[in-house]
Nucleic acid binder design. Structure first.
Length: 586
RNA sequence: GGGCCUGUGGCUUAGCCAGGAUAAAGCACCGGCCUUCUAAGCCGGGGAUCGCGGGUUCGAAUCCCGCCGGGUCCGCCA
């Protein structure tokens, strides 16, 4: 309901400015939400220098007209205004919501859901995320990528976009080449989860390569040969590769599945080489005259970037960046918006990618860059075996969550406790990853992650469990609470009874969910969503403390049950946007 | 050396792009609240020269310049 209120404020403000003969240059009405009012406009500040008047007096001028418009709208009754009043506080013009705003918020949630913004309007988006090399298990760095990407996908789906998530599989890189080479001469541990088994071989293979002191670098050339044969499509080698890559990917998929993350499509980069797409890109660039040769290698000069970008090796084989160009062109033909999630180390590469795509006449992707995740002992390295695998982390965090559940709920069955621990543990992990700005560099401390944060996901899930428990108890007493299924039952409920301070605060918080989502989908920022979820839980907990539901007298009890129902619904909706499950009890 | 990111209470952060009402939260710390729907909760308290120095402005955590600290990238790797 907030977006409608905001539109109304914008409209009235524009009319009032016009009548007061002020012209807001540019379109900004300087609206903001804050602690002082439901919406505040700072337009008077912006107008002051131009009209050579103190902002306070400008605010008064505008306010006069606003009051007139609001009063007329209120008198007309019919379609009631969502604004109750406007007031000036010095230079600020404050707008406050009306009772019908509060009531309409609840009816809106019962009728259709709180956060269904139609902004996306069916536009197709492809989000590429995770895309870890299939040479070992995911570690916490990949996790940040995967969780940001998946959450972004959920935000956009909720905002009305048609989203496809893709995992770009780098099956032609040296890393995978080394893993495949390793698999051909070392014994693979069949009992281990696929990704961990491959990592073992990958690490061992790297050791062999490092230790190879033969003057001809025998091992190195074996790997090179393998890579050339793969690029050429040598059947036997392709089979070898497939075995290694698939085994690893199965393990990775299993890990992602535990985090409620899935990809719609896995795209192998090798397809772009074999289909000739990479070749066509190179030819196109050559025709455009942007290519330089150095020996038999091909280099591409990009404006503003000093270094030339190598797009083909001297031996004629392709490089990551070139394959990525082909991949992005392919993607761009299949969607309206392309979003990539990259770590900071890919920043330069992504700029090169962007410029090269523009050269080819392809619309470049929107790129979300996230900062590094390092360990207290230093940076993560799969090759050196210096990483905390995602599996290990999930295992530990679930065990820790189990301890917490067990401490509080001795009464529950073992299976129930396990289930709650899983939801709480995964929730804590996901919340942790999206609650800070992506560009922030984070040092991952396992102890901190295990110290399940009080005001993180479990806090929000707890509020949901409390709401659920009230509704459960109501149902047990034979009270009808299926407001959503049975909208008629709403007719008899007087939601106007909900005017306690903490009730109003809760309703207002419910109303801005759509606004939070809209911002998230346009800015591609997630931490405000995490913050909103926490605040919603907070106002619910205050309501819970101050307003007894089941013991309230009849009509008020009905109204409060509606509010609890709505709160539970939005809590579970925002948690689902964050990819976090909503336990019925905990 | 050059590019990009970052520096806000003891710790972790929000606010910075589009400058404005007493700098906002969480953790930790101190004190209070379970005879009413789960205390993973609620209420209260202390604690910040917003890295440093200049500048622009009626007004700067926010914009500009310089410096300092931390990170990262600059491969015929991905």
């Amino acid at each position: 309901m907030f977006l409608q209120f905001k539109r109304e404020v914008e409209h009235i403000l524009k009319v009032a400015l016009d009548r007061a003969s002020y012209e807001p240059r540019g379109q900004s009405l300087e609206l903001e939400t804050g602690e002082y009012a439901d919406i505040t406009s700072r337009i008077a500040f912006a107008l002051a220098p131009r009209y050579r008047k103190p902002p306070e007096s400008i605010a008064q001028d505008i306010l006069l007209h606003i009051n007139e418009i609001v009063a007329r709208a209120q008198a007309q009754g019919g379609r009631r205004t969502l604004i109750s009043k406007a007031a000036a506080a010095g230079p600020y013009i404050n707008f406050y919501v009306s009772d019908s705003y509060l009531d309409a918020t609840l009816r809106g949630i019962i009728g259709g859901g709180a956060g269904t913004v139609k902004r996306g309007d069916g536009m197709r988006v492809i989000i590429e995320h995770t895309s870890a090399n299939p040479d070992g298990p995911l570690h916490i760095g990949h996790l940040r990528n995967a969780i940001i990407g998946d959450t972004l996908a959920r935000v956009l789906i909720h905002s009305g976009y048609r989203v496809e998530t893709q995992y770009y599989v780098n099956d032609m890189g040296r890393q995978v080449g080394i893993a495949v080479w390793g698999a051909s001469r070392l014994k693979l541990d069949e009992r281990k989860k696929g990704d961990h088994a491959i990592a073992e071989i990958y690490i061992a293979a790297n050791r062999l390569l490092e230790a190879d002191s033969s003057p001809s670098h025998t091992y190195q050339s074996e790997v090179d040969a393998l890579m050339r044969r793969y690029e050429a499509g040598d059947e036997e080698v392709v089979k070898q590769y497939e075995e290694v890559v698939q085994r690893c990917l199965e393990g990775i998929k299993a890990t992602l599945h535990r985090l409620n993350i899935h990809h719609d499509l896995f795209v192998f980069e090798s397809r772009f080489v074999r289909s000739g797409a990479v070749h066509r890109i190179i030819e196109e660039l050559r025709r455009k005259g942007c290519i330089k040769t150095e020996g038999s290698a091909l280099l591409l000069h990009l404006d503003g970037i000093e270094k030339e970008l190598v797009i083909q090796r001297s031996d004629g084989t392709s490089l990551y960046t070139t394959r990525d160009l082909a991949y992005h062109r392919w993607k761009s033909e299949r969607c309206d918006r392309m979003i990539d999630i990259f770590g900071k180390d890919h920043e330069l590469v992504s700029q090169q990618l962007r410029k090269a795509l523009l050269l080819l006449g392809v619309k470049p992707p929107e790129i979300v860059i996230f900062g590094f995740v390092s360990l207290p002992s230093g940076s993560i390295s799969t090759r050196a075996g210096r990483y905390i695998s995602a599996d290990e982390l999930i295992e530990q965090i679930e065990a820790k969550a189990y301890e917490e559940v067990d401490k509080r709920r001795r009464d529950l069955s073992e299976a129930k406790k396990r289930e709650i621990a899983r939801k709480v543990g995964i929730g804590a992990l996901r919340y942790d990853m999206v609650k800070v700005s992506p560009e922030k560099h984070i040092v991952f401390r396992l102890e901190d992650a295990l110290d399940i944060e009080k005001k993180g996901a479990p806090f929000i899930q707890y509020a949901h469990a409390r709401a659920s428990s009230i509704l459960r108890a109501a149902r047990e007493r034979g009270i009808n609470i299926d407001f959503g299924l049975d909208t008629d039952s709403m007719e008899t409920v007087d939601v106007a009874l909900l005017r306690d301070e903490s009730e109003v605060a809760l309703i207002k918080k419910l109303a801005i969910f759509e606004y939070v989502l809209e911002n998230a989908s346009s800015e591609l920022k997630l931490h405000p969503v995490a913050k909103y979820a926490r605040e919603l839980a907070e106002v619910f907990n205050i309501f819970y403390k101050n307003c007894p539901v089941l013991n309230a007298e009849c009509a008020l009890r009905e109204a409060r049950l509606v509010l609890v129902y709505c709160a539970k619904r939005v809590l579970s909706e925002v948690l689902s946007v964050l990819g976090i499950e909503s336990p019925e009890e905990m």
